[in-house]
Design a protein around this nucleic acid. Structure first.
Length: 701
DNA sequence: TTTAGGG
DNA sequence: CCCTAAA
């Protein structure tokens, strides 16, 4: 008989649930922390730190604030630490937070001024015997040009002093439409350096600047419009099979394999976190906002515009270009976005720093200029540095055919936040970083052009008309990458909500004064710019926050301090949501597929037989208590498919065959519970005829 | 947070 | 599996 068990219990059929459900308040606790939670935590944490720093700087009347302390830490200890290092020449920024619960901590180290390299460092606490969670901020990838151009590293926020920061931000829409009429040849060289993953001596942060164990040097000249002669000088860690597609839709981001690997890599880290944000409400509200449909608007197709795409995707997606190609541009776009979103939860990648600042722009005679039929040719060298000064200029502007030559020394990559378990391999770290960079650059970005500090908005004008063809103006010409303003965000930010909550919190940070302190980017170098209007600032730190952190209660007030910050223009705000969403989603990935084994199915069936189909949480608890990768939703879904499977012909079934016996039970239980809505809680109406009838419908094995 | 369903 | 509206 099928229902032996039940008979054992004195039932002829399904046993009514005899286990009363505990109150919800008692029933929680098995759910995993979501990444989102941690991100939000991080955010709040950041906010709190900012507040602290602000207060400190205010009290000391020092100019620390201007140095842009990019610190994310929990508790004042961290702040203190940070300050200790602060007077160092190169100013490594350590951010580490200690999570009270587990001994995980994160710290950040920004790149230094000294070398044109971004270093990614990690500090490990000697005493933390437990699980260590490595969290690093990559302030930027330094993409310096090989020729040794004197591009100063922008990454150093300590460098507040002058320079030609022509990369000014101007208020208003960051949108810099398509410069389709100007063919841009991009030659980007990027160097990614990951330095020292571990430093045992926490007391000597300084030493970490010089070592360069790992270096990834990539040169990616991607000729966009010509017959791209893709040359690929690789130094050291070359990327296998790297290629630089000319069109965005030539590549597909990620693949199943990658996803799964990543998943494996990061799963643990996600699990280990035990952060407890103090403000639940705020937390929830923020999450709500983040998940609101509003943020989900898809970017315009326009994003696929050639110039940007080629630069972005071609240059930084070498790892993926061997993947399947997308023939449908639009679809491709969607796919990419989707991928990114999925990946995000696993790898917290954060970009901070308002857009990318423009870097040195120079005309580079030594470089081979590419031909084009268009008005101009531009060459981008991957490099770093905040200053966007034109090093050399000799624009030719004689006849109509005059070409203006640009050499953009660098585009700065926004700050990244990467977190991987200590057990992750170096290779996976590399991949992670690559993913991060890829996704960041791949998401909606526009190029902005600054002329004498002003953004050139009219895309339809010729260079000559704009004045760019004029030799004199090249001095003050700057480029920048900025979030594209594809969408027009709805009036989400209602005044009744605190700014922090009404829109993306992290974004706000960017704009707040405190935020300036945090921002390592150009923001602090452009004091006279209206904060509320600079679109690239908007993009800046908004993602900075994703690190999971623990906060003490004191942080709450601090957070508020930030909240009360100057309002930003709606225009600026408008830009935020989309990009925020886009970015944030960039690195989210789908969970790995884990087909149910027969034994699992058996357990599920058994549990459902007893509990019914409406108590998945209990089913989970009972039969999958220790299978943390099976959520009650999973079980519910599996049951759904089991029922379906049981109904279809065996020939149509796929995957590991489930014993017919189990399927029969599935069907029986399904039909039973569908009649008996799992109503009876405590007192089962055992006498109810229906209950007795049910078994009759059950096929006998 | 869970459930319930659609995708 | 994912995503979400509802509860």
């Amino acid at each position: 008989m099928v229902f032996k068990k039940r008979q054992d219990h004195g039932f002829n059929g399904f046993r009514l649930p005899t286990i009363p459900r505990a109150p919800r308040s008692v029933r929680r606790g098995l759910r995993k922390k979501t990444v989102e939670d941690t991100q939000i935590c991080a955010f709040e944490l950041l906010a709190s730190i900012a507040g602290k720093l602000l207060r400190e700087s205010e009290s000391s009347a020092s100019s620390n604030a201007s140095e842009g302390i990019d610190l994310l830490a929990c508790g004042k200890d961290a702040v203190k630490q940070e300050r200790e290092f602060e007077d160092k020449p190169f100013k490594a920024e350590w951010l580490y937070q200690r999570n009270c619960g587990d001994s995980s901590f994160a710290f950040e180290m920004a790149s230094q001024n000294i070398s044109h390299k971004s270093t990614l460092k990690e500090f490990s606490h000697a005493e933390s015997d437990d699980v260590l969670e490595r969290t690093s901020f990559i302030k930027s990838f330094d993409c310096s040009q090989k020729a040794g151009g004197d591009v100063k590293s922008v990454i150093c926020k300590s460098k507040t002093d002058s320079e030609n920061y022509s990369s000014k931000v101007e208020g208003g829409s960051p949108q810099f439409g398509e410069s389709s009429d100007a063919n841009v040849n991009i030659e980007a060289e990027r160097r990614l350096e990951v330095v020292g993953l571990k430093n045992e001596d926490a007391n000597k942060p300084n030493i970490c600047s010089s070592k360069v164990p790992t270096e990834l040097f990539l040169e990616s000249p991607a000729a966009i419009n010509s017959d791209s002669n893709v040359k690929l000088p690789l130094r050291q860690n070359s990327v296998p099979n790297a290629c630089f597609p000319r069109y965005r839709n030539d590549t597909k981001l990620g693949s199943r394999d990658d996803d799964e690997n990543l998943s494996r890599c990061f799963k643990r880290s996600t699990k280990l976190k035990a952060f407890r944000p103090p403000t639940r409400i705020a937390d929830r509200r923020i999450r709500k906002l983040l998940t609101s449909k509003y943020w989900k608007v898809a970017p315009k197709l326009k994003d696929c515009e050639l110039p940007r795409s080629a630069f972005v995707d071609g240059g930084l997606k070498p790892l993926y270009c061997k993947r399947k190609t997308c023939h449908d541009r639009q679809k491709c776009q969607r796919d990419i976005l989707f991928k990114r979103r999925k990946l995000f939860d696993q790898i917290s990648v954060v970009t901070s720093d308002g857009g990318f600042s423009s870097e040195s722009v120079s005309n580079s005679p030594e470089k081979g200029m590419t031909e084009d039929k268009n008005d101009s040719a531009a060459i981008l060298h991957g490099a770093n540095g905040v200053s966007s000064s034109v090093l050399g200029h000799q624009a030719s502007f004689h006849s109509k055919d005059s070409h203006v030559k640009f050499s953009i020394k660098s585009f700065r990559v926004p700050e990244l936040f990467i977190e991987v378990p200590e057990t992750a391999t170096v290779g996976s770290l590399k991949r992670t970083i690559m993913e991060a960079v890829t996704s960041i650059l791949g998401s909606g970005l526009d190029v902005g052009i600054l002329l004498q500090g002003k953004k050139v908005r009219d895309d339809n004008r010729t260079l000559m008309q704009t004045g760019i063809s004029c030799k004199d103006n090249l001095d003050s010409l700057g480029f920048m990458l900025e979030p594209n303003t594809v969408q027009t965000p709805p009036p989400t930010c209602s005044s009744d909500l605190p700014p922090l909550l009404s829109c993306d919190s992290s974004q706000l940070l960017t704009r707040s004064p405190e935020n300036l302190v945090l921002d390592s980017g150009i923001s602090d170098t452009l004091p006279d710019l209206p904060l509320t209007n600079s679109s690239n600032h908007v993009d800046s730190n908004h993602d900075t926050v994703s690190s999971p952190t623990d906060m003490n209660d004191k942080t709450t007030p601090d957070t508020k301090a930030i909240v009360a910050v100057p309002a930003m223009s709606m225009e600026a705000l408008a830009v935020v949501p989309l990009n925020q969403k886009t970015r944030r989603s960039e690195l989210v990935q789908r969970r790995t597929r884990r087909p149910f084994s027969v034994s699992e199915v058996e357990a599920l069936v058994h549990a459902v037989e007893e509990l019914g189909t409406g108590r998945w949480r209990d089913v989970k608890l009972r039969a999958f208590e220790n299978a943390d990768h099976r959520t009650y939703v999973d079980l519910k879904d599996k049951w759904k498919t089991l029922v379906h499977t049981a109904k279809i012909a065996p020939q149509q079934r796929r995957g590991e065959p489930v014993p017919q016996e189990l399927l029969d039970r599935v069907l029986a239980a399904h039909s039973y519970w569908s009649q008996h809505q799992a109503k009876p809680q405590g007192k089962h109406q055992a006498g109810t005829p229906k209950i007795m009838e049910a078994p009759a419908e059950v096929p006998i094995e």
